[in-house]
Design a protein around this nucleic acid. Structure first.
Length: 872
RNA sequence: GCCUAGGUGGCGGAAUGGUAUACGCGAAGGUCUCAAAAACCUUUGAGCGCAAGCUCAUGGGAGUUCAAAUCUCCCCCUAGGCACCA
């Protein structure tokens, strides 16, 4: 079949620009030189690309279409302008990428970096969030890559709820995934950047403190806010919010753990059911009342809920009882069922739960001297009560009792029939306890109360008490007039860069400052060349007289050009659509060629592209389909990752570390084929490869053996060689299909080692050379020529494995006795399980090991293993 | 802190429920040689044993199974990524 295996150069970007700044050479020139060198090196390694079809993203021929796509997106409402916070160096007057910020300082001038609102163009990738999640179902990608993208997009289902600010006309909207916990909201927290902070300035009585906190936050990079473990914040004194569920006033804080760009930039804080809110509330002495009580449903097992049985709902108690002198606790071991529990029982009419608990302790264990009593958290539980033969939905009150002495009454024989009273140490208790609810209260007793994050049954929530979390989410949202909605952690894609070496954004501004796209007939909107690209604090393109003149000549006096360039990820988000038709001057790609070649069948790239490139490319594909430019949703049907090459200390190779290997030098020493083989042999494709020159010696020797083998071809050879040849063809073919080049090479090494010993015919040797040809293209071509062929070996068909030849006459059977391999023997290939079993038990070795034991079971597995199990 | 992927000889790795350590590197001994290099042959997980062979070993601990590097749970460590996601 036809394969399009193209190669291109993503040549815009910061590294090229930095290199140009350093050397004073225009990036256009260095880029051209580098491309030429790369192509030469790739050719010397025998890479079979068609370099006539190459793409260079920094060429006007290509970026014309990058710009054209921008204008298409613009016209279809997928582009907009807004300000967003970015790392800003006030000394360089420039935006910095996270990696250019070192310890909160600019890597170039060491000036302190602050967060600044910077205007820029954005692509509406969030419009496609659901599709980007759904689309992953239909593609053959590594599971972990899919998982990572889904987590990155981060869909949360929740509600928008408004909290009025008392004695003002304002209200603040929050997004929450847990509207069921609204009655437990004890404070609100706003991102320090939240617009309401300045709106409410007049009413805030501690403005100085608030302003200082806002300014301090600006000094933190988002990363520092993330890594800060201690929760900080400042209360907005003089401001109170009203919890719309119960109309109670709660304090309002600003806190940097709340991020402006997620949700609404404001949260309702429920200390009892969120870990961060719990910590924050603890620090600021705020109450933490629980409003959701844990609910455990037991499914499966002896005590799992059974659909065919009736369910009895009742109030219940459970009690943890501590020994009067030792650190031991009462656990009941049940007799009719495999249960270990604390003391449990029902609450009778007229009893308080505590009375019921005390009575139950007395009844079941006889102990009566309860010295200290305290109440623990409530929980709910649904399970099948084996002794009572019915499902139970029990609402538990839990108590902790400390005994004062061992004073005890006699326990009725009836109770004794049900369970045995054990006194257990804490570590034993944890091990044996059956009900999850009991483990939960035990944890609370031992480790103190903490935030309960799960769902459950509502309490302290007025008329919603007793409702399940799931149902309550909608009910409470409706009750306060909120709306159910989804939020994503994915943010819109900022594509503006204040740099020189990128595709100019094809936008001009009229004299009022309103943006207009550059019409198609003026594309490519060329990157001006009369620009000093050394950074001076103004955007490089703003310094171009030519660009200014061009804009005025075309659009009129007073019109000005956009001076930002595009993020290079824009260029790389659609290049695969250009590959089938790279020189088309009328379209980004003809419809015919799109249908012929796309989507991409197999895409190989590093795992580091999971969140950016791969997501952006998928967004582009979906956006272009929406516009009607293409007719598929997913650009890459099958994706596999390749690993990085590390130096021998396991460090990523990079120019800045000076640990890179020059392919020219290494090819000179070992030859391209040995280097290629080593790279493939060193490990699985998707794992990193440690560069170790000693390893190349191995593949070099292998190639020498292959060469020598050409002198050893005879008229006939052992049957072994023929069998192995067909096995090897099958193995190599399958491994290539699965991209397991390391094991394919291993199989070929085994073949050569065997052929050396067993002999080889010319026909077998020729078949082997064809197998090796894709791996070692140069040497196999040479040998092919020496054999007298005129046409290239690379035009030959791949050998076909003959199943009739790839089967051995015999196979080896292993015998395991009680799980240990004790003997092996060979049987004819066609032996059946019955015969194998009979042979196994008649073996001397097997008889010896079976000496005096009775066989209870014999398993013949996959015609390979006989497993004999004796009675124990 | 969170997400993802890993942890197998001296080293790179093989085996995805069925004889652990394929293949390669390195190392030791030998053949050839005046010598060396190259090449070739033998050995090479640990321990015990004259040997046949036995015991132990896939980060640690528990479990499921006739059988676990492989499946389940807990813990430890390493790498990569990260935007405290309400």
């Amino acid at each position: 079949c036809d394969v399009l295996h193209p190669q291109g150069f993503d040549s815009f970007g910061l590294p090229a620009e930095n290199y140009a700044i350093k050397t004073g050479t225009h990036p256009k020139e260095t880029t051209a030189q580098n491309i030429e060198n790369y192509i030469r090196q790739m050719k010397s390694l025998g890479f079979g690309y068609d370099f006539g079809e190459k793409i260079i993203t920094s060429s006007p021929e290509y970026y014309k279409w990058t710009q054209w796509l921008f204008t298409q997106f613009f016209e279809h409402g997928l582009v907009y302008k807004k300000t967003a916070s970015a790392n800003w160096c006030d000394s360089c007057k420039t935006v910095l990428a996270n990696e250019q910020v070192v310890d909160g300082k600019c890597e170039r001038c060491k000036n302190e970096v602050t967060q600044k609102e910077v205007p820029g163009w954005f692509f509406k990738i969030t419009d496609f969030a659901d599709g980007l999640i759904e689309g992953l179902k239909g593609v053959d990608w590594p599971e972990h890559t899919k998982k990572n993208q889904i987590n990155w997009i981060g869909k949360s289902e929740g509600a928008l709820i408004k909290f009025p600010i008392s004695s003002s006309q304002f209200s603040i909207e929050v997004f929450t995934t847990r509207p069921d916990t609204l009655f437990g909201a004890m404070y609100m927290a706003l991102a320090p950047e939240h617009e309401m902070v300045s709106n409410l300035k007049k009413q805030i009585t501690n403005w100085d403190e608030v302003e200082k906190y806002v300014n301090d936050t600006k000094k933190k990079t988002e990363r520092e806010r993330v890594e800060n473990k201690e929760k900080t914040g400042v209360e907005l004194k003089g401001i109170r919010a009203i919890n719309p569920a119960n109309n109670e006033e709660i304090p309002v804080f600003i806190a940097d753990y709340v991020l402006a760009h997620y949700g609404t930039g404001a949260i309702m804080a429920v200390p009892a059911h969120d870990e961060r809110d719990w910590k924050f509330a603890a620090k600021f002495n705020l109450p933490k009342p629980p409003v959701v009580e844990p609910y455990f449903v037991k499914n499966g097992g002896e005590d799992g809920v059974r659909d065919d049985k009736q369910t009895i709902e009742r109030e219940a108690i459970t009690a943890i009882v501590k020994h009067w002198t030792e650190d031991k606790y009462i656990v009941l071991k049940w007799k009719k069922v495999d249960w270990h529990t604390f003391i449990t029982g029902g609450v009778e009419n007229g009893q308080t739960p505590e009375e019921a608990a005390r009575a139950e302790v007395l009844e079941e264990t006889g102990y009566k001297d309860i010295k200290n009593a305290s109440e623990l958290s409530r929980f709910h539980s649904k399970f099948f009560h084996v002794p009572k033969d019915e499902n139970r939905l029990a609402h538990f009150h839990t108590f902790y009792f400390e005994l004062g002495s061992g004073e005890r009454e006699i326990v009725s024989t009836d109770e004794q029939k049900h369970h045995e009273v054990l006194w257990l140490m804490p570590e034993e208790t944890v091990k044996v306890l059956t009900p999850p609810g009991h483990l939960y209260v035990w944890n609370e007793l031992k480790n103190g109360t903490s935030a309960y994050l799960g769902e459950g049954i509502l309490a302290n929530s007025e008329k919603f008490d007793g409702m399940g979390s799931e149902e309550a989410k909608k009910a409470i949202t409706d009750f306060v007039g909120g709306t159910m909605t989804n939020t994503y952690r994915l943010r819109d894609w900022s594509i503006s860069r204040q740099r020189y070496w990128g595709a100019p954004i094809p936008v001009v501004y009229d004299s009022n400052g309103s943006p207009h796209i550059v019409p198609e007939k003026y594309l490519p909107w060329l990157l001006p060349e009369d620009v000093d690209f050394v950074p001076t604090g103004t955007a490089p393109l703003a310094k171009s007289e030519e660009l200014k003149k061009r804009t005025e000549e075309i659009f009129g006096k007073g019109w000005t050009p956009e001076t930002d360039t595009m993020d290079t990820f824009v260029c790389s988000s659609w290049y695969y659509l250009r590959y089938p038709n790279p020189h088309n001057e009328n379209m980004f790609c003809s419809g015919e060629r799109l249908r012929r070649w796309l989507p991409v069948d197999l895409y190989i790239g590093g795992a580091e592209h999971t969140y950016m490139h791969l997501l952006y490319a998928r967004f582009f594909t979906r956006a272009m389909r929406k516009i009607g430019l293409i007719d598929f949703d997913e650009p890459f049907l099958k994706l596999r990752h390749q690993g990085m090459v590390l130096d021998k200390n396991g460090v990523k190779m990079s120019k800045s570390k000076g640990n890179v290997v020059n392919p020219d030098e290494i090819t000179e020493r070992f030859g391209a084929d040995a280097v290629r083989l080593y790279m493939m042999f060193a490990g699985p494709l998707d794992e990193d490869v440690m560069w170790n020159e000693n390893g190349i010696v191995g593949t070099y020797r292998f190639l020498e053996k292959v060469w020598r083998l050409s002198q050893m071809c005879a008229d006939s050879a052992g049957r072994k060689t023929e069998t192995l040849l067909h096995k090897t063809i099958k193995k190599v073919e399958g491994d290539i299909e699965e991209l397991k080049f390391n094991t394919a090479i291993s199989a070929m090494m085994i073949f050569v080692n065997t052929a050396e010993k067993e002999g080889i015919t010319q026909k077998q040797y020729e078949a082997f050379l064809k197998l090796l040809a894709p791996f070692a293209p140069h040497m196999t071509e040479e040998l092919w020529c020496e054999l007298g062929y005129v046409a290239s070996i690379h035009l030959e068909k791949f050998p076909i494995a003959d199943p009739a030849h790839s089967k051995d006459e015999e196979r080896v059977i292993a015998v395991q006795i009680d799980g240990k391999t004790r003997d092996t023997f060979t049987v004819p290939q066609d032996a059946d399980d019955k015969a194998i079993e009979e042979m196994a038990v008649s073996r001397e070795m097997v008889k010896k090991w079976l000496n005096g034991k009775t066989i209870s079971r014999i398993i013949v597995a996959k015609g390979k293993i006989v497993s004999i199990v004796t009675e124990r």
